[in-house]
Design a protein around this nucleic acid. Structure first.
Lengths: 148, 148
DNA sequence: TAGTAAATGATAATTATTCTTGTTCGTCAA
DNA sequence: TTGACGAACAAGAATAATTATCATTTACTA
């Protein structure tokens, strides 16, 4: 009850193989649809579109696969999402290192970053207040814990 | 049924005055407690601590005041929070401009940022995968809309 | 093609956040 | 003081976002 594997499925199957994912119909549609969503969609938005092609798809499937795609590097998260709002009072100029495995957040001084952004300018009418830099990677603890 | 306004309340009252906030007992305790939380606490974590000093405080009050503090620049948000997860497939090197009023997200090419981070190094054992830069400010539309 | 692990769908459960309403508190003028 | 007014608060209901559970189906491998 589905179209036979066409040449169109080839690139997607390769992408899955490259990232260690099994190629399912849902994932393929999910991926194709996100390719056509140029913005920064939320899971709900993706779900709404995918549902038009696979009416029976579950929202849970969308969430699970988005997480999987992010984990495998197929997708990127826009601004790291920590489950809930996180705030800080620390007023001196600094940024953050975020572990992509355990989501731990560590401060890093701007001078230790080796980059010096110059805020205050306008970029296409955008009035810059500040830069927030997230250095994303694997923290020392997670490096030891996992060797995958 | 509370300590008389001591010299300790002075700096906090000034801070509130500077930011156009009325100085309430709850806000003061909230602020003092967050000063002693060096990490990147969530509203729930802040609530748990504040509750020890003001058992009757409401979680809603914590949320409202955290938002207010962020809005007034007393606190900063660690990574912009968009209400829900946001993802993108766009694979070419870019970053984001985020409007602090309307939360709109716009892509910006890395070369247009005028900063060139050098990923891949180690920072205290942290294995860098990539940098994600959020340029935070006011978008053109919000600048026109509001003049406060 | 059968066996097996992984993926899916349905939906309950959790977690996070906001809204509503009635009450209290602080301030200012009579 | 006293009384009105508006901002802030508490309590808890309501909503939004995300995850977990589990029975069923599907995809890869031998």
């Amino acid at each position: 009850m589905q179209t036979s594997p066409s040449v169109e499925t080839r690139p997607f199957r390769e992408l899955c193989a490259d990232h260690g994912l099994t190629a399912t119909h849902q994932r393929q549609v999910l991926y194709e649809i996100m390719q056509r969503m140029p913005g920064h969609p939320s899971p709900e938005e993706v779900y709404a579109r995918v549902k038009k092609r696979i009416p029976a798809i579950s929202l849970a499937t969308v969430y699970k696969n988005i997480h999987l795609f992010v984990e495998k590097g197929v997708l990127k998260e826009v601004s790291m999402h920590h489950g809930s709002l996180r705030v800080e009072l620390n007023s001196h100029l600094h940024h953050h290192m975020v572990c992509s495995r355990c989501k731990a957040i560590t401060d890093i001084e701007e001078k230790d970053l080796g980059v010096l952004p110059t805020p205050g300018r306008l970029l296409g009418g955008f009035q810059v207040e500040r830069y927030a830099i997230d250095v994303i990677g694997i923290c020392a603890a997670c490096q030891k814990a996992k060797h995958s």
